[in-house]
């Protein structure tokens, strides 16, 4: 079965679409042309680069797990539960999507910092978030959580009412419904939420630098290392950028959500 353009794609669309694609691809190609393949292994195996990559992978993974644990229930609540101010709450929860990340970092500092809203209580408990890897994870979770919420919320809204109602008739309770009907049906949406949250966490820069600091192996993630290398060694910065792109491409490729069979394509 050959796939033909559907009714919603007139031919002229190809023109702006091609420009759009080139706008994204060209800078990436330009970056790749600046890399000397012979020097790449040397540039990428420096202790600071390895430490930054390892830290980035660990923290982004943790942040993604936190996004799943917190984001899925949040999306369920926002999509199913109407209460006074629920619209406002939804708007506020999506705020990190549009805020410059550095503002998120400052906000986290005024919350979890030593002089922050919760900082003093945390200090009494013996927890110091400042300048720790935990601060990096918090920053990444803060900026990534809205992506998870949006993806899962859209998926939940797409679940067909009849399916759920049929299960209710069969006597399924809410938790059972969630586990055996809703969660399996929203898996594609959840998967794209995971990809978005992980990718956003991996690329996090502004909130991290404003909130967590920058110390090799502790808080200096790959984007921070790239920015720092740019100061003295632009070649190393480009090499690390390519590495970050490779990781991102692998992640997106591995978890790309499959299109539903009856979706418009």
């Amino acid at each position: 079965m050959s796939r033909r353009p559907t009714v919603i794609m007139p031919r002229w669309v190809l023109f702006p679409a091609a420009i759009g694609a080139a706008f994204i691809l060209l800078p990436i190609v330009a970056l790749l042309t600046r890399v000397d393949p012979a020097e790449l292994p040397f540039l990428l195996s420096s202790p600071s680069a390895v430490a930054a990559l390892w830290l980035s992978l660990r923290t982004a993974l943790l942040a993604t797990v936190l996004c799943v644990i917190l984001g899925v229930p949040l999306a369920l609540m926002l999509s199913q539960h109407r209460f006074p101010g629920s619209g406002l709450l939804r708007t506020l929860i999506l705020l990190p999507l549009v805020l410059p990340p550095v503002i998120g970092g400052i906000a986290l500092l005024t919350t979890f910092g030593r002089q922050g809203l919760l900082g003093q209580s945390l200090e009494i408990l013996g927890v110091q978030v400042a300048f720790s890897t935990a601060a990096v994870v918090l920053a990444q979770t803060f900026v990534s959580l809205p992506f998870m919420v949006i993806a899962v919320e859209a998926a939940i809204r797409g679940v067909q009412k009849e399916v759920v109602e049929a299960a209710v008739v069969d006597g399924a309770g809410p938790t059972q419904l969630l586990r055996s009907i809703v969660l399996p049906l929203i898996t594609p949406g959840l998967a794209s939420g995971v990809v978005l949250a992980f990718a956003r966490s991996l690329g996090e820069f502004g909130a991290t630098i404003a909130f967590a600091g920058s110390l090799q192996g502790v808080t200096r993630t790959l984007p921070l290392e790239i920015y720092l290398q740019r100061e003295t060694d632009p070649d190393a910065a480009v090499a690390l950028s390519v590495l970050l792109i490779l990781v991102a491409v692998v992640v997106i490729g591995l978890t790309r959500p499959r299109t539903a069979p009856d979706a418009l394509r």
Partner: peptide
Amino acid sequence: SPVSEELAVTDVLGK
């Protein structure tokens, strides 16, 4: 033994 080696002087000032 700094707890952070910042990327710019403004980041040091902020902390």
